[in-house]
Nucleic acid binder design. Structure first.
Lengths: 338, 338
DNA sequence: TTGAAAGCGGTACCAG
DNA sequence: CTGGTACCGCTTTCAA
């Protein structure tokens, strides 16, 4: 492999000049620059990452911590991950993949050994033990999620509270008064996954503000779970005219069960999904949905990390406003039912 | 951050001794070792990854290339990825995550800049352009999959041909003579994804060897696609008594459509799935399945990469034998139907 | 606008 | 069994 010295020799300049051509950190005459670039191309020179990291204290690598567990929504995780990788590349960074099960030790390992410049952590829980560890690191970190105490750490996420409010507002606008939330599985709540809690909060507040009659119910994403959930909804909120479904895995089954019980969507019951747009579009019926913008959130996390690395100012908590797109699964409440 | 020199000073030894304590590459007296380890612990010393890479020409990082496209089965991809990360950690390596869309350039970038010791590449196609690039790298690579010409590259995967044969053998043993293959979507075949082709080959050969009456049909994993596929199967192979489903996304819908058409599984029709065990177990009915051992394959890929790095001998192509587990979705053919 | 050279923090060879 | 030290390849300060 060619080194910077080989390039310097071939171009008839000093190694430092080659380095400056590469980094652009000082003016170089056009002539010199061209000679150097020609030599680089000819020799197929690629700077040695380790050497660079050693000399510059910059690795150009971001750590990404993903949950390994599969009770959490895998496709969404994957969307976040690919978004982070893609965004990182546009910022000239690569991504080191860590799994959550290494816990605090994994974070400390890659940080202390200077493998990464910053860390992006997914699947953050209410009182995540990893957060105190992150605070002690010399590298900055960005959470995707929102823990109980985000002090000293930067967080980005969808504004799930607003998302719930948005869903309710849409339904209320269409005249719906009785609305049920079909939530994630109990395990998700139990774990202290904050997006679930935040959505619930927004739902409750929104319900009160709009004067709606609502109920909420977790939902195990299998056939029996969905049936049980819908049965409870019908029992506790008779005459329900709309559902907000914050449970991707269960979504398709909810639609099927509604159909099985003889209810047409949206004629008999409206459904607002909370999910990535492609999921909403790939249902039997295109669903009105509040988008989970995994791509945007991942991109924002990376952009935020870059700001931190550059010492640029950053919001401590950045919650993206939700967008609701009306598709085929919601309709105004029929006058007779109002 | 403490350096090796700080540790050496604190322990009253030379830096090289500290290095040797860390690497175990030469005998150290118990006394010295303890003093050094105490100093390491006290100072919270962690070797600088870049410095280490520079001096040793070893990064202890593996590149993992995953498909970014989502027409491919996301949960399985994720299983492979987490298996690779987990296995890498047991070998004291970390994983750099690359997406397939960077193509050849991405591979060359991380290899030429010495960011990784070896590469693991998923979603390999028949005539994958990346393969020639991999051959030129100084780092070894392991493919998960099997291209047309694997010369010079090590490949690991499930033996999909044998998997198909195994599924048919199981059904034939139970007296089934008319069997249809519900395959992946046409797009998967079109792309030259070899696992699909290999399964098809195995199915065709197995069918001939067992003297079965069979047909094969790709299947778009949505409601209409599944319906159309099953309709074609019924039309072209009337009296079909068993299905082999090599399409995870479609699996649940296949079962539901069978039920909708009044056929009970396994009483009226047997179903063998080809999927990870957890998918087979999470269906309404636990399915007899040929396992896609993502964890094993990922682990094997990593172990193989380690062998290559150590200069130990390795099989060029390693195809894991399939295992079929009988669960509730297959039954002997009823005598009356035979 | 460019060059010289001192590190960055380890590794591993050469000595003893 | 241990120490001294020349690198590994690049960045960046100091000089010119």
């Amino acid at each position: 492999m060619a080194t910077i010295n080989d390039v310097a020799r071939a171009a008839g300049v000093s190694p430092s000049t080659v380095s400056y051509v590469l980094s652009g950190r000082r003016p170089i005459s056009a002539q010199t620059r061209e000679r150097v670039q020609a030599a680089i191309a000819e020799l197929g020179f690629h700077p040695h990452a380790g050497a660079r990291a050693l000399a510059s204290s910059r690795t150009n690598v971001l750590a990404l911590v993903v949950p390994l567990r599969t009770d959490v929504n895998v496709p969404v995780i994957m969307q976040f991950a690919t978004a982070v990788v893609t965004a990182s590349r546009t910022h000239n960074h690569d991504v080191l993949l860590l799994t959550k099960d290494e816990g605090t030790a994994g974070l400390e390992r890659v940080a202390h050994s200077t493998m990464v410049d910053a860390l992006i952590v997914m699947d953050v829980e209410r009182d995540d033990v990893r957060i105190q560890a992150l605070r002690r690191l010399k590298q900055p970190s960005v959470l995707i999620g929102l823990p109980a105490d985000p002090a000293g750490i930067v967080c980005v996420d969808l504004d799930f509270e607003a998302a719930a409010a948005e869903a309710l507002r849409h339904l209320a606008w269409h005249g719906h008064r009785k609305v049920a939330l079909v939530g994630p599985s109990p395990a998700v709540y139990k774990r202290g996954t904050t997006y679930a809690e935040r959505f619930l909060t927004g739902f409750t507040i929104g319900s009160a503000e709009l004067g709606l009659e609502t109920m909420t119910h977790p939902c195990e994403p299998d056939r029996e779970g969905v049936r049980a959930c819908l049965a409870d909804v019908d029992a506790q909120l008779p005459g329900v005219t709309a559902l907000v479904v914050h449970n991707e895995e269960a979504l398709r089954m909810v639609l099927e069960e509604l159909q099985a019980s003889g209810r047409r969507v949206p004629a008999d019951i409206s459904v607002v999904a909370v999910c990535p747009r492609d999921v909403a579009l790939n249902m039997p019926l295109p669903l009105t949905s509040v988008d989970i913008p995994a791509h945007d959130v991942g991109g924002l996390a990376v952009a935020t990390a870059m700001k931190l690395l550059d010492g640029r100012p950053t919001e401590k908590v950045r919650l993206l406003p939700p967008t609701l797109v009306e598709r085929g699964s919601t309709a105004p409440l029929a006058p007779t039912a109002g």
